[in-house]
Amino acid sequence: MIVLADGLTLVERKLLHLRHQPGTLVAMLVMPAVMVVLFGFVFGSAIKVPGGGNYREYLMPGLFVMTGVFALSSAMVDVATDQGRGVTDRLRSMPTARAAVPVGQTGADTVTGLFGLLILMASGLAFGWRAHHGLGHALGAIGVLLLFRYTMSWVGTYLGLIMPSAQTADALAPLTLPLSMLSNAFVPTDGMPGWLRVVCEGNPLSAAVAACRSLFGNPGAAAAGGSWPLTHPLAATLLWSAFLLAVFVPLSVRRFTRAGL
């Protein structure tokens, strides 16, 4: 209950940030459409989807997952900023349940992430993307995306806690972009050189993208002869999330509870 109440308070904090920075809000609304157009038409003119199909249909699950990866950098920056300002210490000196703070923050991020995802989906729908396997599968895919985002948010929380300063976090944050590119999100992995293909298919992101493609019925899912994570994307995504959560939740909670020892 306490965790839930604190989570809601932290969601409100995030929403207040958005209210005070209408620019961010506009960017949040406009960016997805820009990304769909930019990637969809620019890359789409050159990239052939394996097994045929519309590139924008292929691309959307990649964009959905990529916004989830951005949760890693935003959590990292937020947590490092709070820590640098002394806000984290203030919270740790209050009778708030200490575990409630990282739990609340990651929960808050997932709630705002859901809004972002819905906006991105609306943009996709406007440019020809569809969920072909019905509502049940679509909801399943949204569930997978939120789980993935939640996992990334915990990883980011831990990274934020171990950052020496907010500036370092700011400087490292853009690295999530190349991290998202090293996957099957934008380009099929079949044509890549062997070593790169291994790296890209091993990226947990690729499994999540493949899982979304199969749940939404978008092209490019489960290429024959692919590695295990891509032929069993749903299982691989769930295993990845379970593994990363099992590592980073206790690490973050411990670090938050006992920081500065």
């Binding site: 308070t9 940030h17 709070d82 002394g86 806000v87 210490d89 203030r90 708030t96 703070v101």
Partner: peptide
């Protein structure tokens, strides 16, 4: 109560919002 060496408040919120958010987190 603790007031440390830096102003440990959220710069992206108003003063009142800061106090309300911290007050709720302080139960």
């Amino acid at each position: 109560g603790l007031a440390g060496q830096h102003a440990a408040v959220d710069e992206k919120l108003t003063g009142r919002e800061n106090l309300r958010i911290f007050g709720r987190l302080a139960r």
